[in-house]
Write a protein that binds this DNA or RNA. Sequence first.
DNA 1: CAATAGCCCTGGTGGC
DNA 2: TGCCACCAGGGCTATT
Length: 274
Amino acid sequence: MPEMPEVEIIRRNLVDRLKGKMITNVEVLLSRLVKWPTVENFESMIIGRTIADFKRRGKYLLLELDNSDMLVIHLRMTGRLCYVSEGDERDAYTRIVFHLNNGDVLTYADTRTLGTLYAIKKDELWRISGLANMGPEPLSAEFTIAYLQEALKSNRGKIKSFLLNQKYIGGLGNIYVDECLILSKIHPERVGNSLAVDEINQLHAAINQVIDAGINDGGTTFRDYRNGNGEKGSHQENLFVYGRNGLPCRFCGSIIEKIEVGGRGTHFCPQCQK
DNA sequence: CAATAGCCCTGGTGGC
DNA sequence: TGCCACCAGGGCTATT
């Protein structure tokens, strides 16, 4: 489940090899993954273009083309990008193939086919509402304690749901949300506007810390995530609560519980998190 | 307006 | 060993 750290690792691993390469052909093997425009126009907008830059916003990957059009990719649950040489074996779940002018290939693979791809003009990015309406992301200058305080002030939903909502903070997903809540000792069902100032300070620090640790560990691989070179991350070895239900808390030894919050599996320590 | 439930989609898993 | 219900969850849409 790629979240911001995983998507960032993919970007870092691929940026140097993709920049300056021309896309000479595109094979769309599963057309429903292309959300905009039509598959035909998707192909014609991309074929013959050179990749000018490879950026990221939240969980979206942004390939800027030399005419300022953009190839936007969201991996959702099981999307994987992998850079391979022409004759190399491709992922069994390859759905879209981008051929490059040096003979190499960028494959988009996706087991559950929930991922989304767009070819879009720069002034039409509003069409991708999740991208256009995304809040500031962790580790950015815009993501300040004051911002978090202001956003939480009138929020009457559960803190877990708040953190998962990309319009408030861009890039967090289910794994890192559970992790930043244990680090800040906040129960996932606490109401947003009930957080005290010191709790908001701790939450802000924990969000940045968790995302930074995830990037430093090369991301979290439970099953599907790969880093752009087909390799797994290692942050799953350093998690405090996610996937650790029934195991002792690393802080206090209490048994980690799993509940459902906002329709998502939620792991927490009943002793540490109040 | 905001919170929430439902939906998409496939493979791994656990129960019987 | 085989079958099947269920779960994983990001983000969009419909509903309350």
